[in-house]
Design a protein around this nucleic acid. Structure first.
Lengths: 220, 220
DNA sequence: TAAACAAGTGAATCATTATTCCGATCTTCA
DNA sequence: TGAAGATCGGAATAATGATTCACTTGTTTA
């Protein structure tokens, strides 16, 4: 026997795999999953197409992994905002703001994760992604209901609707016409109202001052 | 000269074109646009693939037309509900109900129209589709604001968010676990609240009876 | 250094679909 | 009926992009 993988080689392989994933994600950031072809990836990463297959069994698997990694990063960021403490309204507003800022900063990626058409292998991952967001919002809503800060409501459904509203407002007819701040403020108040927060909707929390200033409740 | 198209032939051609479109739509209803291949269409319609090209210049054009026809039918149905008269809350609720019922009755089609990834030619049509819904909702919201039935709000943004919420709630983590009626009721109240309607949020419309029965306002 | 094995390469191959094309079939009308 | 003109059919072709494979280039250890 004359060859056994050394640590140095192992590390280089790990680094290579990471480099391929990073290159793949950069392609997705620029042009969505449609831009992620094996040829383009090999070119971007400066390797031959065959090399890609030394690190990933199939294109599907690669795409799914890119999706999963990006997803986990996004969801973790959002979840940390949801899981703070403080009143539900504050946390919800902070979360929406964070979600929105991230989506607006990397719109192509957001679109790829949320809405781009992809092959089935990735779609499965997408369900998980959406469900992760939904679950995170749902947890907050359930908490709010228990605390009496929110009226009773079907939390899973409402959470899904919130995710949909955010996705459409942020990736749909892209908000290039409004300033980002206005956009986020608008979405925030929409979501607060939709859950029964925002202004005068909660009886347990009597109005102080401003009798009906819906349109100017600051989103944070 | 010995041949000139007769009425009978013209009618047969028109019928054939319709038949092809119908077959195409049935494929989309079953498996989304991904299932709409020229081969499958020819098979379904009982013709040769060449025949398809006698009626449509290209697959893109065919797909876009299927999309457009289905879209127009759906949007027209929804718009008629939006454009009735009566209080904004009633109309909004009726519209949501209609939209939801249609989507739930043909989930694959709804998904294909709203969310499925497709080629660019169709995507352009999709923007129109979403925009059509958004515009219809926006018109109602603007009306409500002018009438003082709704608080001031960025109507275009809110309309987009409503479309997104409906789309996600109806086509996302499919609502097979809840009964349709509960689902629609939940979505309705979500949308009413989100726009500043629903129960106690409107001052011009003082509460009668039920002080805070958010969860049971009947959707219609 | 040389044998043994692994990683890298990219042209060739495969798979999937749209699209073409030409002979077969049907319609019209003198 | 038969010539003219049009549609039908479906195998052949084209285009795109994933996957393979025979080969070259490292890496490791005796």
């Amino acid at each position: 026997m004359a060859y056994r993988e050394t640590v140095r080689v192992r590390e280089r392989k790990i680094a290579q795999r990471q480099a391929l994933l990073a290159a793949a994600e950069s392609l997705v950031r620029e042009g969505g999953f449609a831009a992620l072809t094996v040829q383009a990836l090999a070119l971007r990463a400066g390797v031959g197409v065959g090399t890609v297959y030394r690190y990933f069994d199939a294109k599907d698997q690669l795409a799914a992994e890119v999706f999963r990694v990006a997803t986990e990063r996004e969801v973790a960021a959002v979840r940390s905002a949801l899981e703070g403490d403080g009143p539900v309204a504050t946390r919800l507003a902070a979360t929406i703001r964070l979600f929105s800022l991230r989506a607006l900063r990397a719109p192509r990626l957001a679109w790829a994760l949320i809405a781009e058409p992809v092959d089935p292998a990735v779609d499965e991952a997408r369900l998980i992604y959406r469900a992760a967001y939904r679950d995170a919002f749902q947890a907050l809503i359930d908490h709010g209901i228990r605390q009496g800060e929110l009226p009773p409501q079907p939390s899973q459904l409402v959470a899904a609707a919130l995710v949909g509203a955010l996705a459409e407002a942020l990736t749909g007819p892209l908000a290039s016409n409004t300033g980002n701040d206005d956009l986020i403020a608008g979405i925030t108040i929409f979501c607060l109202r939709a859950t029964g927060l925002a202004g005068s909707c909660i009886e347990e929390q009597p109005d102080k001052g401003e009798p009906h200033e819906h349109a100017h409740i600051a989103p944070r």
